[in-house]
Simulated scan of single mutants.
Amino acid sequence: MGLALGLCLVSGASAVLMLSVPAPPPGTDSSETSATAPVGDGVPEDSGDGRTGAEPPADSATGQGQEASPGPEGSEEEPVLLRSVEEEVDSADGEMTVVEGESDVMGDGPLTTFAVEVEDGLPGNGDDFAAAVEEILGDPRSWGDDGERSLQRVDGDDADIRVLLAAPDTVDRMCAPLNTNGYVSCANGNRAIINQNRWVGGVPHFDDDLETYRIYLINHEVGHTLGHGHVNCTGKGDSAPVMQQQTLDLQGCEANGWVHPDNEPADDSDED
């Protein structure tokens, strides 16, 4: 589609995510992003500013619309990956706060640590976002891949990766000079910067499957911080590779959020 969506980290270097990026020159290896050449997803051509490009789903996998969680004591609690479905916003307070808390080491292999930050003033519960990020990245179908690396959530300043949830205006500022146009997320250096409107509303072509979209969004942007570039759909009807620009177009593939979807899920996963 000639447009691009998230970006990458190469240790000690900074890279971002961008709109309307020209196609790489012949011979360029698109499997890895460059620390100096920004890469990113563009916005749909008819989206305009895009801040309200997708409505929060009226029916998610649990049949819940815009209820935040957890609910009142004694009520059935939302699954971790579907909590804090809130209204879309244009802006918030502009300051980021680290969500306190650390996890056990998840998986085997060399350790990669990550911290979670949420912009002050956003609707919803920051702990819900942190819990979702932790569940996604700790799953064997994510970047740990049954021994490739282990991951641990921390709340210090020295985390290897930082996953941020921010309002569109803040995303645009943090992703500059790339133009995220109030719509897409990005990765900039070691920061995976998630657009709150995409987190709560998804995109139309995921057919209200917000859970899968959220899994995709975290794994895609974190993938950029780990040095992975964009790829295309492998064939009509295939599961989309996680580094495909699924926010823009499925290209005939089926929506997929996992890096290694054939791995066994975590024992405590909400999925069947």
Rank of each mutant, 00 (worst) to 15 (best):
L3S: 14
G6I: 04
L7Y: 02
L9C: 08
G12C: 08
G12F: 02
A15E: 10
L17E: 11
S20M: 11
S20R: 13
S20H: 13
A23W: 05
P24T: 02
P25F: 05
P25I: 04
T33S: 02
S34T: 08
P38L: 12
V39R: 09
V39M: 12
D46C: 07
G48P: 10
R51N: 01
R51E: 04
A54N: 13
E55A: 13
P56M: 01
A58V: 07
D59T: 15
T62I: 13
G63D: 14
G65M: 07
P70E: 00
L81Q: 00
L81E: 05
S84F: 06
S84K: 03
E87A: 13
E88C: 00
D93L: 07
D93T: 03
M96N: 10
M96C: 10
V99Q: 12
V99M: 11
E102Q: 14
S103Y: 03
S103R: 03
D104A: 15
V105A: 04
V105W: 09
V105G: 12
V105F: 03
M106Q: 15
G109C: 10
P110G: 02
G121I: 00
G121H: 05
L122Q: 14
P123A: 15
D128R: 02
F129Q: 03
A132K: 02
A132W: 05
V133A: 10
V133K: 03
V133S: 03
P140D: 14
S142Q: 05
D145A: 12
D145L: 09
D146Y: 04
L151Y: 06
Q152I: 02
D157W: 01
D158M: 01
D158C: 04
P168E: 06
D169M: 00
M174D: 14
A176C: 09
T180E: 01
N181I: 11
Y183T: 08
A187T: 12
A187Y: 07
N190S: 14
I194C: 07
Q196D: 15
R198M: 08
V203E: 13
H205G: 11
F206C: 13
E211P: 01
I218K: 15
H224W: 05
H224R: 05
G227C: 12
G227N: 08
G227I: 11
H228R: 14
N232G: 13
C233N: 11
G235Q: 02
G237R: 00
G237M: 00
D238W: 00
D238T: 00
S239W: 02
Q245W: 07
L248I: 10
L250A: 10
C253T: 01
E254I: 01
A255K: 14
N256T: 07
G257F: 06
H260V: 12
P261S: 12
D262P: 08
